[in-house]
């Protein structure tokens, strides 16, 4: 039995829905969810080798999402996945609109920056993110594998609300931007955590998610649906694909086996 702990914010919702769909195909796996809204995951402290909420609201959210657990005890899991808590693709696209990296110089030369500098900024932003900080806190109390799954790329529908992002759907711009993002996190300490990316089949133009994966998305703490024009949150189909990828990856890691054995 592989025991996986998923920690995250509202983006955990699609993974929970996805897990409900695929759980029967993974009878050798137990998944526990610890969700709390937005960046409130930062209200955690390491105490007695466990991550403990420092506010009542986080504690309540944890208990609701994990079926009664209020603290994250690394002893109970073989691997950890931190979801939706690092830099979002929407933020990266916004940055690239104002500070255009070399690779995208065909878009604008107003504030041209080198690819190196752009990647350094992205690395810093990720380092300062709630997800990476949580990974570091966790790493201080466990040697087990920690993966970081960034927030889903927004649905292509986001361009209806933010037309300036359509430029990333043209001339391979989105794909080039995605490459920069992936190269940027390469510079982060892999001993803390490893980044994993959403499945290829869900992507559109590198930095968007195909629209079909964002329809009928649900909230994490209630069964309510997100509004129809929500382009940020994904549905269970997306969650199932992402989780299948992640579990496959974890099963392939020898260190998970070592963690299980210990």
């Amino acid at each position: 039995m592989m025991r996986v702990c998923l920690i995250g914010n509202s983006h955990l919702g699609c993974l929970k829905l996805g897990w409900d769909e695929i759980a029967t195909r993974h009878s050798d796996t137990k998944v526990t969810f610890f969700g709390t809204p937005r960046r409130t995951i930062l209200h955690l402290r390491a105490r007695q080798h466990r991550l403990v909420p420092t506010t009542e609201s986080v504690e309540t959210s944890f208990m609701r999402t994990s079926d009664g657990l209020s603290v994250i005890d690394p002893q109970l899991y073989d691997a950890f996945v931190i979801c939706g808590l690092t830099v979002s693709s929407v933020l990266v696209m916004g940055l690239a609109c104002r500070y255009t990296p070399d690779s995208l110089s065909h878009l604008s030369e107003r504030h041209l920056v080198s690819d190196d500098f752009f990647k350094a900024i992205l690395a810093e932003m990720n380092q300062a993110s709630a997800g990476y900080k949580t990974a570091k806190r966790l790493r201080r109390i466990t040697d087990k594998p920690i993966l970081i799954l960034p927030p889903p790329m927004p649905s292509e529908q986001i361009t209806l609300k933010q037309p300036r992002l359509t430029k990333f759907q043209q001339d391979e711009s989105g794909t080039r931007l995605a490459t920069l993002v992936q190269e940027a996190v390469e510079s982060l300490d892999k001993d803390v955590a490893e980044f994993v990316w959403q499945p290829q089949q869900t992507l559109a133009h590198g930095v968007f998610t195909q629209h079909e994966f964002s329809t009928n998305s649900s909230r994490l703490l209630t069964d309510e649906k997100h509004s129809d024009d929500d382009a940020i949150h994904m549905n269970g189909e997306f969650g199932a694909a992402a989780l299948t990828d992640i579990l496959g990856r974890l099963k392939g890691l020898t260190w998970v086996e070592e963690a299980k054995a210990s």
């Binding site: 070399d102 110089s105 080198s114 190196d116 500098f117």
Partner: peptide, 18 residues
């Protein structure tokens, strides 16, 4: 100003122009 330089001479010229 670019610790590792840029990928091509054209990129340097483009940056200088801007």
């Amino acid at each position: 100003v670019e610790p590792r330089g840029l990928e091509s001479a054209e990129a340097v010229a483009l940056h200088r122009h801007a």
